[in-house]
Amino acid sequence: MLQKKICMLGGFSVGKTSLVRRFVQSIFSETYLTTVGVKIDKKSVALPDKTVDLILWDLAGEDDIGSFRVSHVRGATGLVLVVDGTRAATLAAALTLRERVEAEFGAMPFVLLFNKSDLADRWVIPDSEIDELRQLGWQIYLTSALTGEHVDDAFRQLASMVAK
């Protein structure tokens, strides 16, 4: 039995809970219930050579890094950084959260998700900016918890990164 603790990080209301729900239960809901504290879910991912159980810690979204409970990330082997593509500020928030976590626990694999890709008309992140981040060798996905687009791909990618 191989398990890995994964933390969902990102600003307020970017869709962390929705992504986990989409990935684990294949459902989506419009209604927004903010996460208080932490919600834990589990999903087994079958990789070519093994199966890894992802224990997904869905943390409350924080726009303010000051109040972030870094202790929840202790022991995690991977991060899912979530950005809301319709709110530019959430990109900065996600990057800051990652820095904070790295400062505390050292570098760890992560995927960067630009979520809500279905809301094309309200999209504010320029492609050039995403390309720049890709140049750094980062794993980046444009996801939608609503349609499910690229959600599985992103989690599978992370699963294969942490299972090494």
């Binding site: 504290g37 834990i40 589990k42 224990i55 810690w57 202790s71 929840h72």
Partner: peptide
């Protein structure tokens, strides 16, 4: 139910109380 989940939740409770 699912010991893996319960395990993680227990430690989350510990975190919560500690904090």
């Amino acid at each position: 139910e699912d010991p893996q989940l319960i395990s993680s939740m227990l430690s989350a409770i510990q975190d919560f109380v500690k904090d």
